[in-house]
Structures are given as structure tokens and as C-alpha cells.
């Protein structure tokens, strides 16, 4: 790994936060998609209202 010098804490904090935000965006996309797919499958099967209700 390369040497980031005396400013390492700023550099790694910036990259760490970016990774965290990117991971959060992906996780949110996957979980939300999964929830809506399940809700739709339940409704199409006609087994009552979905657990994940509509939001606006």
C-alpha cells in the first residue's frame, strides 16, 4: 500500500466515507427492491394487503 504521509487521516476518512455512502446506496436499493417484489407477489397471489405499504 502506498504511503499517504501526514495527511493520511484526511485521505482515508474521505475514502472511507465514500465507501460507506456507496455501500448504503446499494444496500438501500437491494432491500427496497426486495421488499416491493415480495409485496407485489403477495398482492398478486391475493393473500391480503402487503406488509410493505405504499409511501406516497
Amino acid at each position: 500500500m502506498m504511503e499517504t504521509g501526514r495527511h493520511a487521516v484526511f485521505i482515508w476518512s474521505a475514502y472511507g466515507l465514500t465507501c460507506l455512502v456507496a455501500f448504503g446506496l446499494v444496500l438501500r436499493a437491494v432491500l427496497d427492491h426486495r421488499a416491493q417484489t415480495r409485496a407485489l407477489a403477495r398482492l398478486e397471489a391475493g393473500s391480503g394487503p402487503a406488509g410493505s405499504g405504499p409511501r406516497g
Binding site: L25, V26, A29, D32, H33, Q36, T37, A39, L40, L43, E44, G46, G48, P49, A50, S52, G53, P54, R55
Partner: peptide
């Protein structure tokens, strides 16, 4: 990629909403 995935989920959410209203 995130935008496309988000749009796909939003379309599903709207289908869920329509079906929920129909069922109600």
C-alpha cells in the same frame, strides 16, 4: 445503475399501491 434500479423499484412500488387500493 443505481438510478435504473431505483426507477425499477419505484415502478414496483406504484404497482403495489394500485393493487392495494384495488383490493381495499
Amino acid at each position: 445503475a443505481l438510478h435504473l434500479a431505483g426507477m425499477r423499484t419505484e415502478i414496483l412500488r406504484r404497482r403495489v399501491r394500485s393493487l392495494t387500493l384495488l383490493q381495499a
